[in-house]
């Protein structure tokens, strides 16, 4: 097989249709030029278009990602600030609530004390007044009773010893008795 191939090649070269000598090693000029032009086109497009395009794409993507990260960070900071704000407000509200409750308690306590004090004062007033009235009533009753007692005693004595006893003498006797009674009650 190899023989056939070699023979064919040698024959073909000998026929003179094919390049011979150093031409066998050199590339065909037309193809070389076509290759140079084709590569130049590719290089030109890469140089003028592909290189800048990929850079712009990456820059655009970078900017977008950077922007998104920055936006996310801003939002995060805002959220954190908001959270702090809410926490402060909540703490303030709790303090307020505690203060209001304390105040209310204090106020309640004050009202209660006031009421109690007022009630005590009123009660004392009432008791004092009642005592005074009772004393007055008692004194008057005693006075009345003494007077009535004297009259009744006289009337009684008069009925018992009608006309037999000197009225004035009797009366002084009764009064002496009542004076004794007074002394005893006091």
């Amino acid at each position: 097989m190899l023989t056939t191939l070699t023979t064919d090649m040698v024959l073909a070269v000998a026929e003179g249709e094919e390049p011979s000598g150093v031409d066998l090693l050199l590339p065909a000029t037309s193809e070389l030029i076509a290759g140079i032009i084709a590569f130049a086109i590719v290089f030109f497009v890469v140089w003028k278009f592909a290189g800048p395009a990929i850079n712009l794409t990456l820059e655009k993507r970078q900017a977008a990602i950077k922007g998104q990260i920055e936006a996310a960070e801003t939002e995060k900071a805002e959220a954190a600030a908001l959270l702090d704000d809410y926490k402060t407000q909540l703490a303030g509200a709790r303090g307020d609530a505690a203060r209001i409750i304390d105040e209310a308690k204090q106020a309640g306590e004050n009202v209660r004390n006031d009421i109690i004090a007022k009630a005590n004062a009123e009660a004392e007033g009432i008791i004092g007044k009642a005592r005074t009235e009772a004393d007055t009533e008692k004194a008057r009753a005693l006075q009345d009773a003494r007077s009535d007692m004297a009259n009744l005693s006289l009337d009684l004595a008069e009925k018992v010893v009608r006309n037999s006893i000197d009225r004035d003498a009797q009366r002084s006797l009764v009064e002496a008795y009542l004076a004794d009674l007074d002394r005893m009650s006091n």
């Binding site: 086109i41 278009f49 395009a53």
Partner: peptide, 20 residues
């Protein structure tokens, strides 16, 4: 060779022109 250049250019062009 011309076709190869054309295909290479087309691939780069359509692959990169939109800059998505």
């Amino acid at each position: 060779m011309g076709l190869a250049a054309l295909i290479a250019v087309a691939l780069l062009w359509f692959g990169l022109r939109r800059r998505p």
